[in-house]
Nucleic acid binder design. Structure first.
Lengths: 160, 160
DNA sequence: TACTGCGCTGGGCGGATTGTCCAGTTCGAG
DNA sequence: CTCGAACTGGACAATCCGCCCAGCGCAGTA
């Protein structure tokens, strides 16, 4: 699953101009179209590229408030809590973690006031002992992957 | 920026089968192709759909370890810290937050041992007073948006 | 050294889709 | 009632896609 330099350039190019098409990519990268197609297929079957789903902005949907909640779970209730949180649309992602909490989840809400409703719904479940919420004020580095791809493309480090 | 039911179905459809194409979408949704194109254009210029960039899996790139770090920043050093963290490829996102810490960032690493290197690089900067790291063990709810889109499409709540 | 597998090149093919028009119709707002 | 916005159904040329092929260079191996 190592990524070579061409793979890296390909992913970066795709990230910058998603609508670009295989043919144009082959022109920009200076390789044959078949090569680009083969690389793309490989990257996708590798799982390096999971897909090209639309990136939806919650803020534009009317949910401009983002928060992270650290949850403490009652012993043995983990599975139930997971199932519960999966039913809440405002829970955008959920992780189980080491450290001070047991779970960390990303929430969105229509407003700070609405966040209260969301949190009530999240913690309104037996298995959750305590929740600590941090509201996001600014997002200096939005979710990104390009720098990592570039680094992975440089290093010959065999991986996985 | 309100989303109606057709918009919602369109986004959900796109999310499930990104390679589907406008024409096939119009067939599935039972509307004219022009309508789908117009809706898509509107959603994109609205900012609801930010784009269709490739979704890259850090694990497949050789970075299977994810962690969240809560950082405490020395007063007035915020901007410097932001700039510093932006230069670290393993920092996938960064937020400034309310609550116990000042910033929250998502990190990836090649291994638990490698995570030490990443954290050292992250906190090896004057402005950072303290860092608390939580390693992700499981990810029961991967980053998702569909449930929220469906809810936004149902509710007539005017937004933004 | 010769062999073999692999990836890339450059080309070609038909089918399908895209972007872009258009006129006609419906529907809600003023 | 009239207007504008949105949707429909259709059309067009241009482009691209998925797929196929033969040939070539390079690596590792026998």
């Amino acid at each position: 699953m190592a990524i070579d330099h061409l793979d890296g350039r390909l992913i970066v190019l795709l990230a910058r101009e998603p609508r670009i098409g295989v043919l144009e990519m082959s022109r920009r990268l200076g390789v044959a179209r078949g090569t680009v197609q083969a690389r793309l297929d490989r990257l996708q079957s590798n799982g390096v590229i999971r897909g090209f789903g639309p990136q939806v902005d919650p803020a534009a949907l009317g949910y401009p408030v983002t928060a992270f909640a650290t949850l403490q779970i009652r012993q043995g209730q983990g599975a139930d809590v997971r199932a519960h949180l999966a039913t809440v649309p405002e829970v955008l992602e959920l992780h189980t973690t080491t450290g001070s909490g047991d779970m960390l989840c990303r929430l969105v809400a229509r407003s700070n006031a609405d966040l209260q409703r969301v949190i009530d719904r999240v913690v309104g479940f037996d298995g959750i002992v305590r929740a600590a919420t941090a509201i996001v004020m600014e997002n200096p580095v939005p979710l990104r992957i390009i720098p990592l791809v570039e680094q992975a493309a440089e290093d010959p480090e065999t991986t996985t």
